[in-house]
């Protein structure tokens, strides 16, 4: 599939520059709109997510950050009444085409959530779970060990691999969830506020881990912590809320600015970004 011929030209000029600077786009989002029933969540979002980069999505509550990244692995399919419009191309393929297998999408595009959510099983079985579902059970022990090593957890758990996952600390549980996502050999890791339930030391471990994972994976992280976005990401997308109960339009999330993280945090181009990141929002 030739991506270039499919891509509608809806990017702002500065985003075109970004696309030119970073050659490989993993996702091309074009005019993406998502809603829950009659309630819009995000509207007309267009951007590219680049290969082996960490992209942070920031913005105030209700701006549709989580909805946005859930579109990347079709998690919104699982929500009754959710509707996704516009296009997302994943490595050139229309992610929402009728013949696309959503389970295969979620294997290649893994997700880690705000609260560590290990299954009530052993450490080993947590990591092996996705492998078994996807029938990737050859060399299972090796795959489990590799995933735990990649998640920087192996040394801490190798002697108690059959212990229940619930015995681990919060930070360890979150790294276990990352290992579980990595086990099925994904291409992209989506992280929805992965550190908001963790203490600073566990947070640092996850951030260091993200830095290492960047060599092999494309990462998209939603975070409320702007310093975290500044520390870990290469690119930052700032979403805001437009419309309100006072106007005739109901509130919906819009992409305000998307640029390198250095640019966003030193000299953003949009006043709304400036006001938000400097704490003068609202």
């Amino acid at each position: 599939m030739n991506v270039m011929t499919q891509r509608p030209n809806v990017l702002a000029p500065d985003l075109e520059d970004l696309v030119n600077e970073h050659e490989t786009s993993v996702f091309e989002v074009r005019d993406l709109t998502a809603s829950y029933g009659a309630t819009p969540a995000i509207e007309n979002v267009s951007l590219d997510i680049f290969d082996k980069k960490i992209t942070a999505v920031i913005g105030p509550s209700g701006c549709g950050k989580s909805t946005f990244i859930r579109c990347f692995n079709r998690m919104n399919d699982l929500v009754a009444g959710a509707h996704v419009g516009g296009k997302i191309f994943y490595r050139g393929e229309d992610l929402y085409a009728e013949d696309v297998d959503a389970v295969e999408v979620r294997r290649r595009i893994g997700m880690v959530f705000q609260q560590p959510n290990p299954f009530p099983k052993s450490i080993y079985d947590n990591v092996a779970f996705g492998l078994r579902v996807n029938r990737m059970t050859d060399h299972l022990d090796d795959r489990v060990e590799k995933a735990l090593q990649d998640a920087a957890l192996w040394d801490e758990v190798k002697r108690k691999i059959k212990d229940p996952a619930s015995a681990l600390s919060g930070g360890q549980q979150q790294r276990l969830c990352i290992a579980r996502a990595l086990a099925t050999n994904p291409d992209v890791l989506l992280m929805d506020e992965p550190c908001s339930a963790l203490d600073p030391i566990a947070t640092t471990k996850i951030e260091d881990l993200m830095h290492e994972l960047k060599a092999d994976y494309t990462i998209v992280i939603v975070t409320h912590n702007m310093q975290q976005a500044a520390r870990v990401s290469d690119l930052t997308a700032f979403f805001s809320v437009e419309g309100s109960a006072e106007t005739d339009r109901s509130p919906r999330g819009v992409l305000v600015e998307y640029d390198t993280t250095e640019q966003i945090f030193t000299a953003p181009n949009d006043r709304r970004t400036e006001d938000y990141i400097t704490g003068r929002f609202g």
Partner: peptide
């Protein structure tokens, strides 16, 4: 205060 953007400048 970890200033950013125009505050950092």
């Amino acid at each position: 205060q970890a200033p950013v953007a125009k505050d950092l400048r």
